[in-house]
């Protein structure tokens, strides 16, 4: 089995697990599901964009572009950016979850029916 096939399966499993957790009623499971799906997306970029051996993408002196057999660094740059952003957002979501549980007194999403906005 190639690495690509293995990783594709891993992406699928991560998405399935994440979605399953997101459909549960507990708010914490929802968050764990979200973070799993985020990781699945990062792996997906990796698999879809560039997963092959190559030389470092450094242009030799005088050339305008790296050699054609070079690995593509952009996919990794995208994933790195995405990881940093999702880390920050997830941190905020965790804090908000804590506040939500405090404010509503429950961690069951079905109990969180909308309140009439305060006057």
């Amino acid at each position: 089995m190639t690495v690509e096939a293995l990783l594709s399966v891993a992406v699928g499993v991560l998405f399935a697990t994440g979605l399953y957790l997101m459909l549960r009623r507990t708010i914490v499971r929802l968050l764990i599901g979200l973070s799993l799906i985020g990781n699945a997306a990062n792996l997906l970029i990796f698999v879809a964009a560039s997963l092959r051996r190559g030389v470092p993408p450094i242009a030799p002196e005088g050339a305008a572009a790296p050699p054609p057999e070079a690995a593509d660094p952009l996919a990794q740059a995208l994933i790195l950016t995405a990881i940093v952003i999702s880390f920050g957002v997830l941190g905020f979501a965790l804090a908000l979850t804590d506040r939500t549980v405090q404010a509503t007194g429950t961690d069951d999403l079905d109990q969180m029916t909308e309140e009439e906005p305060e006057p």
Binding site: L34, I37, G38, A40, A41, N42, L44, I45, F46, A48, A49, S50, L74, A75, L78, A82, I85, S86, V89
Partner: peptide, 14 residues
């Protein structure tokens, strides 16, 4: 955002 990321990754791959 996750859907956006997946779309961007797939598009870059294609």
């Amino acid at each position: 955002s996750v859907v956006f990321l997946c779309a961007a990754g797939l598009l870059y791959g294609v």
